Simulated scan of single mutants.
Amino acid sequence: MVEIPRRRAMSGARAQVQVVGALFMREMLTRFGTSRIGYVWLLAEPLILGSMISLMHALSGSDLPNGLPTFLFYALGYTPFLMFRSIVARGSNAVNGNISLLFHNRITLLDTMIARNLMEMMVCFTVCLLFILLGMLIFGELPHQPALLVAGWFMSALLAHGLAMVIGSAMVVMEWVEHLVHPFTYLMMPISAPFYMIDMLPQGTQEMLLWNPLVSIHELNRWAMFGDRVIPHYDLVYVLAWIIGLNVLGMAGLRMARPRLSLSD
């Protein structure tokens, strides 16, 4: 059994940026290959999924209040949730999927996690920007608060990143946790408000759902996009507390998980 070495002290941030950059390119090549079709599919997959979901709701014939465009409402609700689900599902496997790389003392578990999750985040951001561009060209819809909208996407990514680290470190100790990840992310969809506004629900249901920090993020995103045509319900302090808590817990978990890994696993 060959023990995995730890990274030696070096020029901290610069070294980590170099390592994460190299791992990011490796993730891109591993997942999509060297052909241009692979990189086209990188954007096409979430773009098609978001478009199909929004089209299904548009064809249902149910209008949204205050003239909200159905396509943008559902596409910009589903795509950030798709990012959250992808980061949690794929990011949590970064630990077991990159054990061989940890033989290099410049690479840490955190590096592999950041590289994989950064790729998922950039894909989502690009697709969301494409949806907004379509909204501007077709519907004449401009984001109400563009900076706040991007901040909401970042918060969703950071929340998912922290959760992925927690789950990834737990999988090192309890392998059965891996089988719960996909059901968990699918069960999160109906209680995270990607397809509906909290203001449409009874007071008791609103209070219950707002315990989920993703609900606040989706509510913030909708207000940042559509402005006063929606009545938002969110608590940014609560969301930031979840983000900080999960990321601190996740980094501590990765630190504890590393000594348990070996190249024979």
Rank of each mutant, 00 (worst) to 15 (best):
I4W: 03
I4S: 04
R8H: 11
M10D: 08
G12Y: 06
A13W: 12
A15N: 10
Q16G: 00
Q16S: 00
V17G: 00
L23I: 02
E27K: 13
M28L: 14
F32G: 05
G33M: 02
S35G: 10
S35K: 12
I37H: 02
Y39Q: 12
Y39S: 14
V40Q: 12
V40D: 06
A44T: 14
M56F: 14
M56N: 07
M56K: 06
M56C: 13
M56I: 12
A58N: 08
L59G: 10
S60C: 12
G61P: 03
G61I: 02
G61M: 03
G67H: 15
L68D: 09
F73G: 11
L76C: 02
L76T: 01
G77E: 10
M83E: 06
R85Y: 02
R85C: 01
V95R: 01
L101S: 05
F103N: 09
N105G: 05
R106H: 10
T108R: 03
L109T: 04
L109M: 12
D111T: 07
T112L: 10
M113H: 09
A115C: 12
R116P: 06
R116W: 04
L118C: 04
M119Q: 09
E120I: 00
V123P: 08
C124K: 11
T126M: 00
V127K: 06
L134P: 09
M136C: 05
I138D: 05
E141M: 01
H144M: 13
Q145V: 11
Q145S: 14
P146M: 04
L148N: 06
L149V: 06
L149N: 07
V150I: 13
G152Q: 08
W153E: 13
S156E: 11
L158I: 05
H161N: 10
H161S: 13
L163Q: 14
V166F: 03
G168P: 14
S169F: 02
S169N: 07
A170G: 14
M171F: 00
M171P: 00
H179K: 08
L180I: 14
Y186W: 12
Y186C: 11
L187R: 10
M189K: 09
M189L: 15
F195R: 14
Y196V: 05
Y196T: 09
Y196F: 05
I198H: 10
I198E: 09
M200D: 15
P202E: 01
P202I: 02
P202A: 01
G204M: 02
T205H: 03
L209F: 04
W211H: 11
V215F: 12
L220P: 05
R222S: 04
W223Q: 09
A224W: 04
G227Q: 01
D228S: 10
V230M: 07
I231W: 05
Y234P: 06
L236V: 14
Y238L: 07
A241M: 00
W242S: 10
I244Y: 08
L249G: 12
L249D: 14
G253M: 01
G253D: 04
M256Y: 15
P259L: 00
P259M: 00
S262I: 08
L263P: 06
L263E: 08
S264D: 13
